[in-house]
Design a protein around this nucleic acid. Structure first.
Lengths: 142, 142
DNA sequence: CTACAGCCTATACCTTAGGCACAGGTCAAG
DNA sequence: CTTGACCTGTGCCTAAGGTATAGGCTGTAG
């Protein structure tokens, strides 16, 4: 049986993250009856490595939990795994477009501002730089 | 004097967002002595439009507040505004690289999985799809 | 006159994935 | 015996609001 720190070390995480995953239901340790420490079965190392792998692929903890529940019921989680990946690819594409649009707006403003002097607040203007920026599509910023 | 809903309507926001900005110190309404409603001066419309403009350029509320404090002290906020924009352009570039790397990983996995059958959990594997994914650079995911 | 609908207000809790801080417990070295 | 290092636990904090709940106002229909 492993303590949080031992488990964290074997999976390249922090003890706090291990406790967090536990709170989220991704790990089920037992408690040491004397000091109340979390104690993990050695097989949890494999589970946790799976979690890290899935996270690196963009899966959220809630999605990973759903995948685990599939597996716990003996069902193949693979259909769900494929479906979530497709959704993420779409979402990420949208997010990339938003950030690229923001990047363009910022770089355009930077260029525009290069020739403008600093102004002093005069009561009807806070910062003319920002106020001068054309506000086309804002794009939700997530 | 405007109520939250009137102010929100004139600036294309929601009443809740107006209250949130107020809590964050970006607006300073007085309170109606009878019903405790927030009451905003008509000039706050211009302030709030400035906030929306800055947000569209990627500024955070905390940064906008710092800019306003500059202006309140009679200092030109423009140097700070330029400096923050540069920082954001750098940060956003990093974030874009992270998301593009994730997008590549996801699309690679999708292609790789196309030829793989669904598996049933067998005790030493949760989902071979995810487990088969090569985990090169994860890139922090923000 | 009152019941109800609709709109307004206020506060409080929820979100992600942990980071950070604090208080207490255990162990070996000095 | 005490000190320091290391471990544990819990609880608060994040950005920018969304959503839910509870209460107050007015207009109208019965």
């Amino acid at each position: 049986m492993l303590t949080v720190t031992e488990l964290a070390r074997q999976t390249d995480t922090t003890p706090h993250a291990v406790r967090y995953y536990t709170r989220k239901g991704l790990l089920q340790p037992v408690r040491h009856p004397e000091n109340n420490y979390r104690l993990y079965k050695p097989s949890e190392v494999r589970w946790l490595k799976f979690v890290r792998q899935a996270k690196a692929l963009g899966y959220t903890l809630a999605e990973i939990r759903a995948i685990m529940l599939d597996a716990d019921k003996g069902q193949s989680p693979c259909p769900r795994v494929r479906e979530i990946l497709l959704k993420h690819i779409e979402e990420n594409r949208r997010q990339l477009e938003i950030l690229m649009s923001l990047q363009k707006r910022m770089e355009f403003a930077l260029k525009q501002w290069a020739d403008m002097p600093d102004g002093v607040p005069d009561g009807h203007s806070v910062c003319h730089l920002i106020e001068s920026s054309t506000d086309d599509k804002k794009g939700e910023l997530q």
